[in-house]
Design a protein around this nucleic acid. Structure first.
Lengths: 171, 171
DNA sequence: CCCGTGAAGTTGACATGTCACCCACCTGGC
DNA sequence: GCCAGGTGGGTGACATGTCAACTTCACGGG
């Protein structure tokens, strides 16, 4: 056996199982989204973020931070979705550099069509399959890894979802 | 709170943490691979599979099954890597439809340059961060999910890695 | 007021991944 | 032998993601 590193076979086995799980999970979820609503995983992430946001709209910057995406990815994805009539771009009056991304009725219908099947699939493959203890373990372990990999990414999501629409709705 | 489904907030929180973990983990590992050896994650997966295979070569079909990739993805990726001098395609004498994918010296150097940093990064972000109990939990849970998502994908990897080179090395 | 720095977004080029389709070849039944 | 259906693999069009510029604007210090 040609050894490449000092990582044991048992550890590699865990890693391979983890990778396979991610792959199959994504595949199944994406297929379901496409079958139910004709949208992709990234489409759904954007739509759901906007659906849950105050006034169904978010600054592009906040969308990116919420999803952990780079700004150019957000821009490309939004452009494609605007072309399909799911979203709309709107100028930001308080910061002329900014852009609001707004959910359109067509986009709202797509989220609603996709959500039930998506939830079903997630329950079938994830939530119903894990014990509460396993979920707790996974949650804790995930947060630990994120802290190490990217110490800067913590604790911004809440304020984005709750506090920032005052920039335009507060008179 | 506009509820989209019957999945509880605690469960969603686990899901988000899990997603963020995957994202940051991939980002860190890919950056390291690129810095150390100028290759991408998919590049490394191919190279490592070949490096560990008998005679440093695999049938395209087996490569795909080993990695869980579609055949066209394998073909595109191999084409790009052949163009960079990392791999070579060779005809299969026993099945004229088949193709062997062979690791070239340049590819071997790339794996070796990438492996140490990759292992370091995986240990820093994964193996050293998880307790043995957590690894066991993650392993078991992953296998369970894979079984549900794709019941057909089990128990082929071993024979690919160990048994199939007789097609050409056995006289 | 004006300048330098940095933030917000967009764009184009390019790498990656998927899908539908194609072709060559193998294999089993007749 | 021959044909039907399946397998192995490649290709081109397109969707997705990343990187490096570039533009516009905000903001703080002289």
């Amino acid at each position: 056996m040609s050894e490449v590193s000092e990582i044991g076979e048992a550890d590699w086995s865990v890693w391979r199982a983890f990778q396979a799980m991610r792959r199959e999970l994504d595949r199944a979820v994406e297929q379901r989204l496409h079958a139910d609503a004709g949208i992709s995983g990234p489409d759904f992430e954007i739509l759901l973020s906007l659906f849950r946001a105050a006034d169904n709209q978010l600054r592009a910057r906040d969308l990116g931070e919420l999803l952990g995406w780079e700004k150019s990815r957000v821009s490309h994805q939004v452009t494609r979705m605007v072309a399909r009539g799911l979203l709309e771009r709107r100028e930001c009056p308080t910061d002329l550099r900014g852009t609001w991304v707004v959910l359109l009725p067509e986009g709202r219908r797509a989220v609603l069509r996709a959500s039930r099947g998506n939830a079903t699939e997630l329950r079938r493959l994830f939530f119903d399959v894990l014990t509460p203890a396993e979920k707790a373990t996974l949650n804790e372990l995930s947060e630990r890894i994120v802290d190490i990999a990217n110490p800067a990414s913590c604790a911004r999501a809440d304020e984005i979802l709750n506090g920032e629409q005052e920039q335009q709705t507060a008179s």
